[in-house]
Each structure stands twice: as C-alpha cells, then as structure tokens.
C-alpha cells in the first residue's frame, strides 16, 4: 500500500483533517461496499450502509484508539449495520444475481458451472445472517478465522462452527 498508513490517516482524521479522511474513505469504500452488498444482497441499501459507516468513522475519529487495524474496525461497523438492517427488514429485496462470473461462451460444462454458481449464490443469500457473514468475510474478503472471530466478537472455534453449518446448508441446498 503506497502513501500514508491507515493508522496515520486516522490520526490525522482525528485532528479534523478532511483530506486524510477522504483518502481513507477512497481506499476502503469499494471493499466495504462489496462486503455490505454480499451480506445484504441489495446494492442500494449497501450504499447507505457504507455511507453511514464512513460517517461514523469521521464523527467518532477523535475517540478512536488503535487497538485493532482500521480495516477490521470499519468492517465490524459495516457488519453490525448490515445485521441490524437484516433484523429490521428480514425480507430485503435482493438484487439480480449479477455477481456470478460469465464463463467463456460455448461448452455445456461451462453453462452447467454458471447455473451451479447461480444456485450457490442464491443459497448463500439464504443462509442465516452470521453464517453468511462468516462465508463473506473468509471467502470474499480473505480474512483469517482469527480475524473473522475478532470482527464477529466470537472465538475461532465459533467461526469454524459457523462455517461447518454454512457449508452443510449449502450442500443441502445445491443437492435439491
């Protein structure tokens, strides 16, 4: 990562440096949006969530203490806002499954893979909130089990249990 570190940018943001905050937001907005969109399945609400999360970063920056990496802190805010949104509106309208990669045209096997991936994406969207969150954090964001546990405020074994249950549910959904 070039330029100042997240820690330095947050320290300057805490002093009221708007440019530092804009740099920080620009650096993390894309990944935060991807995380929220995966968790909610709704891009419009995901935008609102990320905007809310970044505003909270700005307003609360003077109180921030570097006990964890900034990305972990931001992701925790985003995850909690997404979980709250799901609790308030459990039947959120889902976007069309645009997040399935287009295969090369032609072979039936590739079409079959595309269909299976579409069903897998739908099955992920139907998982319970914490199981889906664990799947997104590990397979999309590339976090370790330990980082995911810290973000979800649980233990590593708790994360592993979530993953086992999620994968079992996904296999059942794909077998149908």
């Amino acid at each position: 990562m070039e330029g100042p570190s997240d820690h330095d940018l947050m320290a300057r943001t805490a002093q009221g440096d708007r440019r530092a905050f804009q740099t920080l937001a620009q650096r993390h907005a894309g990944r935060a949006f991807g995380l929220a969109r995966r968790m909610l399945g709704n891009g419009a609400i995901a935008e609102e969530i990320v905007q809310d999360a970044l505003l909270r970063v700005w307003t609360n920056a003077p109180r921030w203490r570097p006990e964890a990496a900034f990305r972990t802190w931001l992701y925790r805010v985003v995850v909690n806002l997404c979980l709250n949104a799901r609790r308030r509106a459990p039947d959120l309208p889902l976007d069309a499954a645009a997040h399935v990669a287009d295969p090369a045209p032609g072979a039936d096997a590739q079409l079959e893979t595309r269909e299976r991936d579409r069903r897998l994406a739908a099955a992920i969207d139907a998982l319970p909130d914490r199981q889906r969150t664990a799947i997104v954090l590990i397979y999309q964001e590339g976090l370790s089990n330990a980082e995911t546990a810290a973000l979800l405020d649980t233990s590593v074994s708790g994360v592993e249990t979530l993953l086992v249950r999620a994968k079992r549910a996904l296999r059942i959904a794909l077998a149908e």
Binding site: G30, E47, L55
Partner: peptide
C-alpha cells in the same frame, strides 16, 4: 465458494457515489 465470492461486482460506480455523498461532513 471462492469462484462465486470473488466474482467482480457489477456496480463499480457505487463507491464513487458514496464518496460524492461524503463531500460535506458534519462536525466531529
């Protein structure tokens, strides 16, 4: 899972919209 979860997001303009709405910031 890795294939599905790392597929590119269709809405690449969303982060820019978010940043545009953060141009005006409230007091800390």
């Amino acid at each position: 899972l890795r294939r599905v979860m790392t597929a590119g997001d269709a809405d690449e303009a969303a982060p820019q919209r978010i940043l545009a709405r953060l141009e005006r910031l409230p007091p800390q």
